[in-house]
Design a protein around this nucleic acid. Sequence first.
DNA 1: GAACTCATGGAAAACCTTTTCCATAAAGAG
DNA 2: CTCTTTATGGAAAAGGTTTTCCATGAGTTC
Lengths: 344, 344
Amino acid sequence: MIKKISIKDVAKLANVSPTTVSRVINNSDHPVSPETKAAVEKAIKELNFQPNRMAQGLITNRSGIIGIIIHDISDAYFAEIVKGVQEVLFDYDYIVNIYNTYRNVDKELRAVNMLIANRADAVVLTGGTLLDSYYKEKMQQYIEELKSYGSIVIGVTSHPFAIKNIKIGNEYIVKTIYNYLASKGHQKIAYINGPELLSTTQNRFSGYKQALLERKAVINKNLIIKSDFTFMGGRKAALELLDHLGEFTAVIASNDELALGLIWEFKNQGIKVPEDVSVVGIGNNPAAKYSYPPLTTVALPSYQLGVQIGEYIKNSLYSTKVVDDEIEVQVSLIERESVRDLNR
Amino acid sequence: MIKKISIKDVAKLANVSPTTVSRVINNSDHPVSPETKAAVEKAIKELNFQPNRMAQGLITNRSGIIGIIIHDISDAYFAEIVKGVQEVLFDYDYIVNIYNTYRNVDKELRAVNMLIANRADAVVLTGGTLLDSYYKEKMQQYIEELKSYGSIVIGVTSHPFAIKNIKIGNEYIVKTIYNYLASKGHQKIAYINGPELLSTTQNRFSGYKQALLERKAVINKNLIIKSDFTFMGGRKAALELLDHLGEFTAVIASNDELALGLIWEFKNQGIKVPEDVSVVGIGNNPAAKYSYPPLTTVALPSYQLGVQIGEYIKNSLYSTKVVDDEIEVQVSLIERESVRDLNR
DNA sequence: GAACTCATGGAAAACCTTTTCCATAAAGAG
DNA sequence: CTCTTTATGGAAAAGGTTTTCCATGAGTTC
């Protein structure tokens, strides 16, 4: 019932050996006469033969599988990375498979484990490290495992274990925003933090603190809200901020969902953005431009990042040339209408 | 340099045969004494052994790979489907890999081809058929191929070739919207169409026409705008509609991006939503609730759909029980604030 | 105590490729 | 004319599993 056409069938039909068939499939260096080649190709077409990747992989030690671990594919940031990676690698016959882990330690670990079993050629870890200590240790071990099988491992935002690390300057982003707001005359700036156990959160927050330090501003603890990167989190944060209305003129949300929630709830409470309070997010979420007012935010060039990761993988796996270990990624502030210029 | 631990190494360490190791790995029916089992497990742990999936697949005829072909992972509708599928199948050690084809014929075909080479256990075709005739013929052939290798093929919105078809009642959705608007007193309703070569587009539009027919309304060609499922497309459509302002009180956009663009541009032109014109979308895009006003739309239960697809695949592949061939998916209208009630 | 059955384990073939090594014949070199 | 290359092709091993079939010994049954 199940069709099984193998290289042998092709060989038989073309009246050659499997070896020869393999040679034409792989465009081998070993010479094959034009006639035999044509015969083989004809047979392949006739039988609709597709070499079995598993058998190939078994012997070449290449699975053709690229794993990419993300928190949530619904998040445009991750979706764009995946697209970039996939776009590039598609042309080289790699299949990219994704794991939504929702920042869950067990899922993350299990995903890597599956990737080991599948002998993935490369795995990309996005979304920042989870700072759980059990996770860290275990992940460390798995990644060693992965590497020892010959996989290349890439960490997107400073995964400490990865072979290659791509840094999006999270501190830099927040400092940029802070300075931008300062240039618009804002002195007192609130900050909405992300989920605690995430390196991204820590790095962004550290950028906020650095900015305060550089401008010799005083820290007002009332203006630092713990939250969780969600729209609802943003709404709650807005409510918390309500008690301290006079104490700030602007707020930096550590991602766009948060910022969108903030704007929503402020509007809901009769507080006007940007007239009463300015809001800036991070991420350039697609929804950011549909909001009212359109959200000023920082674009993480995630698609481009994905493409670069893809290129890096391709080069490492496909060619022998030494690949540049630096990936530069440009971050840009997108001015829309959620910030008021206090200088005017 | 590259680590290669095989079942043989485990066997040697545990002082048993590879056969026995295989038996404990796979929890075989063939009895293994508790002591040997323990010994094997100890050896596995000690060597950090992970059975090679490719070797396994070669012999079991199962790759453990699920392919899912989508137009664009950045589109929340697809992202949610993928999540659902992945969520379910993750627990059964399947890896799901995605292909963004951007509705491109060649990419779509190439993707299926790669899935054949990888001997995918199942492939899911989302996003509606492309109505290109070359595509149709070629795809037909590929799918036959796929099936003949034992893959199961699932089409989400009436892919004519798939083994199983899951229909989201696209006609029904639009009729529901139409009737909803009618119940709010709207008589003249414009319609923004999607990209032409897509079955989804055709089905939704057919729903619009049916609704008109049922209500014995006259078709006003000025109110039917060709567009393309994008935000910019929605903006352009709004502009086109500007010339016929008196002729309609509401507009149905065939997806949310379109609706969001519509609202944006109407606002831009000083036309108030919903005071001057009501807008309804389809899809419940995450951005829909951040818009101003929040968009009334129809939720396609895409995550749930994904879960069901996942379940179906799991059941077909994993168990022997016959699986129900009907998948019911519930569609619901989400009332927000973009529709005005003319009865009051 | 003979004949079965059952629990446990191993040997070897099979899955489908690629790769290494060898074979043959024709062509070129001297 | 012999020796060496070169072009072309095949045989067989290897890769890491699972599976089929067989072997052994102990326990049961009469």
